[in-house]
Simulated assay, not measured.
Amino acid sequence: MTDHRQRPRRRGQGELEGLVLSVLREANGPATAGWVQERLGGDLAYTTVVTILTRLLAKSAVTRERAGRSFVWTPASDQAGLAARKMRKVLDGEGDREAVLASFVTALGPDDEQLLRQLLRQPSAESED
């Protein structure tokens, strides 16, 4: 006889990281892994949550500090900052940066292209130092 019980859908690593980050952003300050696990609905094991947080730390998406015998975690940036970090990582992995950037810009819609032009005209924080 075959067991016809459905197994829970397996989520991808990026999806879990996104869920953990969104829960951390809801916190009123640094949060423990246990707090994150509770807010996720107990769907994930505590060790899985710690693993995800540790991966996010390696990607500089979160910070942590010691609190007693454990750690508390804080998101390092918002969704926009995280997306920008991913875009930069892709760009850094390519040999011909000019070709990648040119291809990216030509694929933008008119509104996004105009927004990018406006952003490029703004003085950067680095040039003000």
Rank of each mutant, 00 (worst) to 15 (best):
T2K: 13
R5H: 04
Q6L: 14
R10Y: 02
R10I: 05
R11G: 04
R11T: 09
G12S: 15
Q13S: 03
Q13N: 02
L16P: 02
L16C: 05
G18K: 00
L19N: 06
L19K: 10
V20I: 09
L21N: 04
V23N: 01
L24P: 02
R25M: 01
R25E: 01
A27Q: 06
G29W: 04
P30S: 07
A33N: 11
G34A: 14
W35F: 12
V36C: 12
Q37I: 08
Q37Y: 08
E38C: 09
L40W: 09
G41S: 11
L44P: 03
A45E: 12
Y46Q: 14
T47D: 10
V49W: 04
V49A: 07
I52L: 12
I52A: 12
I52R: 14
L53F: 15
R55H: 01
L56Y: 08
L56N: 08
K59E: 02
K59H: 02
K59I: 00
A61M: 14
A61K: 12
V62G: 03
T63L: 10
R64A: 12
R64Q: 13
G68L: 03
R69G: 11
R69Q: 10
R69E: 10
F71N: 15
F71K: 14
P75I: 00
A76P: 01
A76L: 01
Q79H: 04
A80V: 11
G81E: 07
A84K: 02
V90P: 09
V90G: 09
V90M: 14
G93E: 14
E94I: 15
G95F: 08
R97T: 05
R97P: 00
E98Q: 12
E98N: 09
V100G: 06
L101K: 00
L101R: 00
A102E: 14
S103W: 15
F104A: 01
V105W: 02
A107Y: 13
A107I: 13
L108I: 04
G109C: 05
D111W: 05
D112E: 15
D112K: 15
D112M: 14
D112Y: 12
E113P: 06
E113C: 13
Q114H: 07
Q114D: 06
L115W: 06
L116H: 06
L116R: 08
L116G: 07
R117M: 08
R117E: 11
L119D: 01
L120M: 07
L120A: 07
R121G: 01
Q122K: 07
Q122G: 03
P123D: 01
S124Q: 00
A125G: 04
E126Y: 03
S127I: 10
E128P: 01
E128R: 12
E128Y: 03
E128W: 04
